[in-house]
Nucleic acid binder design. Structure first.
Lengths: 146, 146
DNA sequence: CCTAATCTCTCTAGCAGCTATAGCTTCAAG
DNA sequence: CTTGAAGCTATAGCTGCTAGAGAGATTAGG
């Protein structure tokens, strides 16, 4: 049996985060020691490692909730899991595309900076005037398509 | 003179967001009509367009605050503005690198999905076992290097 | 066995960057 | 003059944590 601290070390998840996951119902409530401290077994470790891994891959907690409930039903078809992963892939691809446009624009900005005064700084100038941009980089980075 | 709604339309910034920017001091308090409604002139429009554009390029509000104060002093050297833009560029580049790794992993997941049941779904399997991954994709996406 | 150091507990509040709601007032068109 | 849209303030909520306070539990050393 692991204490919350050991579990955190084993999975690379911080202790308050584990408690947070329990609070939002992503991890089930676990048994407690005589002194009310959480104790975790192998299943909890696996589940938390799953969550951690999915978070690392950029899945939202909502998506992870769905994936976990799928993982709990091995007999069901995996189409739903596949769909979630595909949606995440699409999301990642669109973020990459957007970030590439930003990168191009930022590179243009810094390359053209003459290192003089603000008055003729390309960085400030471009920010002041969108028409100086060559790429389409509207919509903030974190945004999800509507 | 523009009302807040017209300003929002002109810049593509939502009305509550404009009020929020004023609240956090990114936009100065503006004049009001006899009936206490905000009225904006050309300068406010330019400033908000600047903010919007910088947000689109992924700058944080803190960075934008700095850029705005630089833009307000055209006589100063532009090294600081250049540094902010370069930092943003570096940030964007590292995000792209991370997202590429995620994309590769997600693609492997969905490509190998046999469309059977969850029990042998590659998606669930990979999430359950990090050692099945080929790329290094630790650290969540939004993270800033320490 | 006692103490000190280190966990762990709960609870609350905070971060970015908005967005939404409630309940009101003001304004412009007809 | 009335109606409906647009504006006002204030507060709370969103995601995914993180930090802090103040208390109790556990463990290692003496």
């Amino acid at each position: 049996m692991l204490t919350i601290g050991k579990l955190g070390q084993a999975t690379g998840v911080k202790v308050p985060t584990i408690r947070y996951y329990e609070q939002i119902g992503l991890l089930p409530e676990t048994e407690r020691s005589a002194g009310n401290q959480r104790l975790y077994g192998r299943m909890a470790l696996d589940r938390l490692a799953f969550i951690r891994h999915a978070r690392d891959l950029g899945f939202t907690l909502e998506a992870i909730r769905d994936l976990l409930s799928l993982a709990d039903h091995p007999d069901r078809p995996c189409a739903a899991a596949d769909a979630i992963a595909r949606a995440q892939l699409a999301e990642v691809e669109s973020r990459i595309a957007r970030l590439m446009a930003l990168k191009a624009e930022l590179e243009r900005m810094v390359v053209h900076c003459a290192h003089g005064t603000i008055a003729d700084c390309r960085v400030i100038e471009v920010l002041s005037d969108h028409s100086l941009c060559v790429t389409d980089h509207r919509h903030p980075e974190g945004e999800v398509a509507p």
